[in-house]
Structures are given as structure tokens and as C-alpha cells.
Amino acid sequence: MSETLQHIVIVFGILFGLLTLAAGLIWIERRLLALWQNRYGPNRVGPFGIFIVLADMIKIFFKEDWIPPFADKKVFVIAPTIIMLTVLLSWAIVPVAPGVVVLDLHIGILFFLAISSIGIYSTVLAGWASNNKYSLLGGMRMSAQMFSYEVFMGLSLMGVVIMAGSFNLSDIVNAQENMWFVLPQFLGFVIFFIAGLAESHRLPFDMPEAESELIAGFHSEYSGMKFGMFFVGEYVGVTLISAMIVTLFFGGWHGPVLPPFVWFFLKMMFFICLFILLRAALPRPRYDQLLSYGWKILLPLALLNILVTGAIVLAIE
């Protein structure tokens, strides 16, 4: 009985914390971007402007939720829910602290890869349902980008799996008690980081949105809460990738003095900030450059990484 209750607390704790974090990221991102651009950012509403989050949420809840008359209505409504669903589902396998995990699957990584891939449908369907050429182009870019980066995202993780000998994320975290995998698997980390960036279509890899070319791409036609869902989906995606990096390469909850949950949170926040720094600093590459970079450089590197890791592990054994 108490175990079930504990489970329910974990499930809702993670869900609630995640959504709060995603909302808070609106404020964090704007403040950080401002910080790196010699500005202040939102600092008027509440202490340090934190209540801008509330204001934004109130605004987005009460905005007219308009469906264009030319849109494919059903698909148009379904699309934003998919991204919310997939990123939240992916979070299920992330161990926040020892034993604090929604679903301790022993095929955790595979589950993560599978579910996060379904997220493509969200953008592709949104682009399609909007019935507008820019949105469609955005959707098409998204699918191409995701397909390409999915491949070596999976491959880049294989090094970690080989070293930990398990797909279970808790096992992987435990395998890093003495040494974070980022040291032996540095190449894997870099590839996963870049692929994760592309996966969450954050700047500089936000081709599907590309305001300047595609006027917000797949979500041009979205407004109100449906747009809000895309937005939250993106931020949860950012936390997901950060959490995965921490779990797979930076020892998860491991750390001295502080409790494991805090360590996990701090490490995750570091990567979230890094994501934001990237957005502040880097320009958007050309679309074809993005794809050729993926296929011609990252894919061979990922394969090389598996080969070398496998060879070394075999040799040691």
C-alpha cells in the first residue's frame, strides 16, 4: 500500500515538477538571454520578474483558440497533444534519485529512443494540418532532421550501453559511481549533445520554425493553448535531453555532500543553461549544411565510437 502511494507521489511529483520547470523556463530563458545580451529581461512582475510566468500563462489560457477555416481540424487539434505526450512519456524512465523513477524499465534507453521519435508526428502533422505552404515546409524539415539525427543519437548511446552493460538507466547511473562516462565516452557525449539539440529543435537547429524564412514554420497557424502545448513540449524536451545527458554521461544523481536529487537537479540545470547559451550565441546554419553535417560527419564518428569502445571493452575483458 505504501509502495503504491510512494509510486503515486513519484509520478505526480515528477509530472508536476516538470511542468513547473517548463513554465519557469520561460522566465529563466528570457532572463538568461537578456543577461548575455547586456539587458535585464523581464524584471517587473514580482520578485526578479518571476511572475511574468504567471502573466504569460494567464495570457495564453485566455487567448482566442482559433482554428483556421482551411485547416484539417481533427489533425490540427491532435498534433500539439502528441508532442506533450511523447516528451512526458520519455521522462518516465529518467531516474531522478535512487529509486525515484516512474518506470524502472530495463530497456530504458530503447524506450526513450522509441517514444521521443514519435514526437516527429506532432510537427509533421501540425505542418500538414495547417494547410499552408510554410507550415508544411516546416513539418517536412522537421521529419528530415529527426530521421537523420535519430540514427546517430541511438548509435552515440551504444558506447555507454556497452560500458554499463545494461539498457536500464538506473544501472547506467550506478555504473558511473566511480567515473562519469563523459570521460571515456567524450565523443559519444558530444554527438549525443548535438543530436539532442537537433531532436528538441532548439536554436541553432530550429529549422522547422525558422522565423525569418518560414514565419514560425509548423506552428504558424497555432494560437492560444495549442500553441502553448508546443511551447511547453519544447521546454520539456529541453529538460528531457538535459536529464538524459546528466543520466548517461555525468553520473546522474551521484555527487558528494548534497542529496542525490539536488545533484541531479543542479547538473540538469547546468545543461539547460548551456542550451540557452547556445541559443544566445550561435546563428542558425543552413538547412542542407545541417543534414550533410549529420550524415557525413556525425554518423561516421558515432560508428567509430562504437567500434573503438567495443574493441577496448573486449580487450579489457
Binding site: L35, W36, Q37, N38, R39, Y40, L277, L278, A280, A281, L282
Partner: peptide, 13 residues
């Protein structure tokens, strides 16, 4: 460029 942008944190607003 990441580093330089990061350093802007310590500039005057």
C-alpha cells in the same frame, strides 16, 4: 563565441 557571449554576463547593462 560561446565563451564571449558568456562573458557578457559581467558587462554593464
Amino acid at each position: 563565441s560561446l565563451w564571449y557571449v558568456f562573458l557578457h554576463m559581467f558587462r554593464k547593462r
